[in-house]
Computed example of a mutant assay.
Amino acid sequence: MQFVFPSPPTVVVPVAASNDFFPVHCIYCVGRNYSEHAKEMGGSGREAPFFFMKPADAVLPVPAGTVGELRYPSMTQDLHHEIELVVAIGKGGKDIAAADASQHIWGYAIGLDMTRRDLQAEAKKTGRPWCTGKGFEQSAPLGPIYPVEATGQLHQGAIGLQVNGAPRQRGNIDQLIWNVPETIEHLSQYFELQAGDLIFTGTPAGVAAVVPGDLMEATIDGLGELKLRVLSS
């Protein structure tokens, strides 16, 4: 096979405590999956799950023990953080029952769904897609992926984010409106999941803006921490 230009490298994320890497296929995101966040974004607090996507190369991998660097994106004055539990799929499938979902999970990670909130808000008002607000470069910072063999299935655990040492987001993953197995069940009705897919499962309340110079510190019980410095564009 001959390409007309060099094929882009595969997007990969480090595996915790290993020299291995997890190759990324697609990134799926669940909207408004914590009731208090749904309310702060104008929702009812309980609604059927809905999904949006980011391109695989939106991933900004941050190895353990390092501070990642996020360039402040163009075309926004309102860049928001959203900490999320990320589920890494290791076995594909379609129409997966919630009772069988655990068989498809390879591991878990801390992720940030960075959002150009002003662009997303404008898209909502005009009924247009969220791509410019959600799918830009480096919009999916990700810590190392922890294999499920090391963590077990995650059903509860504190999730939180600080900016410059001050708490912004706090919650527990047992507060998910649609838990991980239910999310996989719903998502796999719309898409045939593949090994390498990542599912951002939703964010707790407290989303807010960051500016260049800010240091974000995101934590989820059992998954270490993700540190990220915001740089000028």
Score class of each variant (00 low, 15 high):
202 G>I: 08
27 I>C: 06
90 G>I: 04
37 H>C: 08
57 D>S: 04
78 D>S: 14
220 I>A: 11
101 A>N: 02
114 M>K: 01
120 Q>H: 07
100 D>K: 15
106 W>L: 09
1 M>R: 10
144 P>H: 12
107 G>D: 01
107 G>A: 06
154 L>N: 03
66 T>C: 12
15 V>E: 06
7 S>T: 14
97 A>Q: 10
50 F>R: 06
184 I>P: 05
102 S>D: 02
159 I>V: 13
187 L>P: 09
20 D>N: 05
80 H>W: 06
170 R>W: 06
88 A>E: 08
192 E>P: 06
30 V>S: 12
193 L>G: 02
212 P>V: 12
58 A>E: 03
31 G>K: 04
109 A>Q: 01
196 G>I: 06
14 P>G: 06
218 A>T: 05
66 T>R: 13
83 I>C: 11
187 L>W: 02
173 I>H: 04
181 P>G: 04
150 A>W: 07
135 G>Q: 06
62 V>Y: 02
27 I>R: 09
232 S>P: 11
75 M>G: 03
74 S>K: 12
39 K>G: 02
142 L>Q: 10
222 G>L: 09
129 P>R: 04
6 P>T: 13
112 L>P: 04
84 E>V: 02
150 A>H: 08
130 W>E: 08
164 N>P: 03
98 A>D: 00
177 I>K: 01
220 I>L: 15
97 A>W: 00
81 H>S: 01
227 K>C: 13
38 A>S: 15
34 Y>A: 15
27 I>T: 02
180 V>A: 03
66 T>D: 09
153 Q>N: 08
65 G>E: 05
64 A>F: 07
226 L>Q: 14
112 L>N: 12
128 R>T: 09
45 G>V: 03
193 L>H: 01
200 F>I: 00
84 E>S: 12
150 A>N: 12
193 L>V: 02
180 V>I: 09
8 P>D: 05
81 H>N: 08
166 A>G: 00
43 G>E: 07
111 G>D: 01
203 T>Y: 04
155 H>C: 06
215 L>V: 14
231 L>P: 08
232 S>A: 15
21 F>T: 15
56 A>E: 13
55 P>H: 00
149 E>K: 14
85 L>E: 00
97 A>M: 03
87 V>W: 14
186 H>R: 11
183 T>Y: 00
163 V>C: 07
214 D>F: 02
111 G>L: 09
173 I>V: 14
209 A>W: 11
131 C>P: 00
174 D>E: 08
148 V>N: 03
100 D>V: 07
65 G>Q: 10
61 P>I: 01
211 V>E: 15
69 E>C: 11
223 L>D: 07
124 K>D: 01
130 W>N: 11
206 G>I: 12
23 P>Y: 05
68 G>Y: 14
70 L>F: 14
231 L>N: 14
3 F>T: 15
77 Q>D: 14
141 P>V: 03
39 K>L: 13
201 T>W: 02
90 G>E: 09
8 P>G: 04
89 I>H: 07
105 I>P: 04
213 G>T: 08
233 S>V: 05
139 S>C: 08
110 I>P: 10
197 D>M: 12
19 N>G: 12
135 G>M: 03
58 A>K: 05
210 V>F: 05
3 F>V: 13
150 A>Q: 10
